[in-house]
Write a protein that binds this DNA or RNA. Sequence first.
DNA 1: GTGTAACCTGAGCATATACTCGGAAATACT
DNA 2: AGTATTTCCGAGTATATGCTCAGGTTACAC
Lengths: 215, 215
Amino acid sequence: MGRCMGQVRWKVSDFAVKKEPKQARSRASVDAMVQACARVLESRGYAGLSTNAIAEVAGVSIGSVYEYFPGKDAIVARLAEGMLRDVTTLLQGRLALTDSRNDLNSAMRYLLGAVYALMCKNRTLLRVLVFQVPYLHQLPATKQLEIELQQVLMTGLQHTRQQYSLSARQHTLYLMTTSVAGTLMHLVLVAPPAMDPDGILDALADKMAAWLVEG
Amino acid sequence: MGRCMGQVRWKVSDFAVKKEPKQARSRASVDAMVQACARVLESRGYAGLSTNAIAEVAGVSIGSVYEYFPGKDAIVARLAEGMLRDVTTLLQGRLALTDSRNDLNSAMRYLLGAVYALMCKNRTLLRVLVFQVPYLHQLPATKQLEIELQQVLMTGLQHTRQQYSLSARQHTLYLMTTSVAGTLMHLVLVAPPAMDPDGILDALADKMAAWLVEG
DNA sequence: GTGTAACCTGAGCATATACTCGGAAATACT
DNA sequence: AGTATTTCCGAGTATATGCTCAGGTTACAC
């Protein structure tokens, strides 16, 4: 077997593209590989993912896969980065809307609902990425998403006029991001469907809005 | 290669023990295998885990491994169940202490601190288990831990005399478990060490205690 | 002691997966 | 049309890992 088995840390070169596609044909092939990767992850999990499977599902030859990617992890990384970026840009977009609303609570609810809805599409794929892909949380896009979430909440914080100590704000900010992330993750990936997501998001929005004005 | 590659769901038989060790010698062997499994997971990650590696590190022959386990997943499952049970029993123990204290806030802080400390040992191993083992959240012990956490918080809820609607309580309970879990997970597994865990746990205890009395 | 059951061994076979490479086919350029 | 470049192919090789099995060793009961 090749390299890359038996290590806990990954080199960035594992995730880089080998060659940039230049013609429309090859761009379509690369896209097909990434899509195939998603489908294989959904149906067989990360352990069942192989370059051969990707090539087969994508309808291209195994040689073509290695023409553009150094290995399967690069394809997974590209797929994950795309999905994470979707959430990040959603957050950025909704942030503009949030600014114009003066009702903090409903603005928060709006944001949470949007992110929740986006996560629910691709539920299965997301589950595999989060629970099985070893290097997901080391990806740049993951950290970018964390930063973006903090940014959104920070803006909410700055809107409130209350003055608290800086450390208190920092801690609250941290708690909010981890709480929101933890709740959304569990709600989307783990909780049974009988869980009344709308009611829970209502409650979460309430609590978070309250934390914002408290400090 | 054997079976068990390429599936998203696992059979319980994958996690069962093949034969129960009866003499002290074999019990030591089985224990060595589980410990070796932990060490291999820490140093090479789940992708680098193999029955051969386990046997080598444990100092037993590969044949002995298959004498007692149907495959590596059974060993991982046993290891994980042990660690999860440690947290569960800790929670149960501290719950008794919590009852006797009337200061809800400090009781909460005590609990959080204890769980955090326990998680911090075996940080690396925990990281691998949580982020890489595909079937971790399907293990009975995982769900048991969730239930136990809810139980502890529920007891806190019942201690407060306030009467709110049942659905509000249910939602708050859910939010508390997911928030606490999310924050602890991030703090232990992801956050950089410069994060001032004590201060954050203080803040979290404050917030959670407040939610308890609010409803 | 002797017999039985539990325990251990490790070479070896089967298989899955990573990855290469020589060359064919399509496309772009002039 | 002719040439260069890009793209694609897929049989084939190397290797890691799963797992078996025939036979040896140790512990225990009587």
